[in-house]
Measured scan of single mutants.
Amino acid sequence: VKVFRALYTFEPRTPDELYFEEGDIIYITDMSDTNWWKGTSKGRTGLIPSNYVAEQ
Rank of each mutant, 00 (worst) to 15 (best):
I28T: 01
T40H: 14
G43E: 05
S32I: 11
P49V: 02
P49N: 07
K42C: 10
I25T: 10
Y19N: 07
L47S: 05
E55K: 07
D16R: 08
P15D: 12
R5I: 15
E21P: 00
I26L: 13
N51G: 12
L7T: 05
D33F: 04
L7G: 01
S50Q: 06
Y8E: 07
K2A: 08
K38Q: 12
S32L: 10
P12Q: 04
F4L: 05
S32F: 07
E11S: 13
Y8Q: 12
G46F: 02
R5Y: 15
D30W: 03
D30E: 11
R44N: 09
R13D: 09
Y27H: 08
K2R: 15
K42I: 02
T45M: 10
P49C: 11
T40W: 14
A54F: 11
S41K: 04
A54Y: 12
E11R: 11
T34A: 15
Y8G: 07
K42T: 06
L47K: 10
G43P: 01
V1W: 12
F20M: 09
V53K: 01
E21I: 07
I48D: 01
D33K: 06
R44F: 08
R5P: 02
T45E: 12
Y27P: 00
S32C: 10
P15N: 10
Y8R: 14
F4Q: 02
F20D: 00
I26S: 00
T40M: 13
S32R: 11
N51M: 11
P12I: 05
I48A: 03
L7K: 08
D33M: 06
A6P: 03
N35A: 12
W37R: 01
A54N: 07
R44A: 08
R44P: 02
T34C: 12
D24Y: 04
T14H: 14
G23F: 04
L47H: 04
R5V: 15
R44L: 09
M31K: 06
T14G: 13
T9S: 12
E55I: 14
A54E: 14
I26H: 00
K2V: 10
L18I: 07
I48E: 01
F10I: 04
Y19H: 09
R13M: 11
T34Y: 09
I28L: 04
W37D: 00
A54W: 10
T9Q: 06
Y52Q: 06
T45Q: 10
P15L: 10
A54V: 15
V3C: 15
I26V: 08
T29N: 08
E11N: 14
L7P: 00
Y52G: 07
I28K: 00
G43W: 03
K2G: 09
K2P: 09
I48Y: 01
Y19V: 04
I26C: 02
N35Q: 14
Y52H: 07
P49W: 05
P12T: 05
E22H: 07
V3L: 12
V3D: 03
E55R: 08
S50N: 06
E17Y: 12
A6K: 00
T45K: 10
F4N: 02
N51I: 09
S50F: 06
E11F: 15
V3T: 11
L47E: 03
G46E: 00
Q56D: 14
D33Y: 03
T14E: 09
R44M: 11
G39Y: 01
Y27L: 12
L47T: 06
M31P: 04
W36Q: 03
P15E: 12
A54I: 15
D24F: 04
W37H: 02
K2C: 15
G39A: 09
K38I: 15
A54L: 13
D33H: 08
S50G: 04
S50M: 07
D33E: 08
E21L: 09
Q56C: 15
V53I: 11
E55A: 13
D24C: 07
I28P: 00
S50L: 04
G43N: 07
T9V: 04
F4A: 07
N51H: 14
G43K: 04
W37Q: 00
K2Q: 09
Q56L: 15
N35D: 14
F4V: 14
Y8C: 15
Y19P: 13
E17G: 10
E55C: 10
I25K: 04
S41R: 15
A54C: 13
I25W: 09
R5L: 13
T40I: 14
D33S: 08
A6G: 05
T45G: 06
L7C: 13
S41L: 15
E22M: 13
G23V: 01
L18K: 01
D33I: 05
E21M: 09
N35V: 13
Y27K: 05
E21F: 07
T45H: 12
R5M: 13
V53H: 02
T9D: 11
F20S: 00
D16C: 10
E55V: 12
E55M: 11
Y27G: 03
D24N: 03
Y27R: 06
T29A: 06
G23W: 05
M31L: 06
P12S: 07
F10S: 13
K42Q: 12
I28C: 01
Y52E: 02
Y19G: 15
R5Q: 11
S32V: 10
T14M: 10
D24A: 06
F4S: 03
V53D: 02
I26D: 00
R13G: 10
F10Y: 15
K38A: 08
Y19W: 09
E22G: 06
G46W: 02
L18E: 00
A54S: 13
G39S: 01
Y27V: 10
I48H: 00
I48P: 02
G23Y: 03
E21R: 10
V53P: 02
T45W: 14
Y52R: 04
G39H: 02
S32K: 08
T34R: 14
L47G: 02
G39F: 02
V3P: 08
T9C: 09
T40S: 13
V53G: 02
V3Y: 10
D30G: 06
I26W: 01
A6S: 03
I25S: 04
Y27W: 10
Y52A: 15
A6W: 03
K2I: 08
I25C: 10
L18Y: 01
D33L: 07
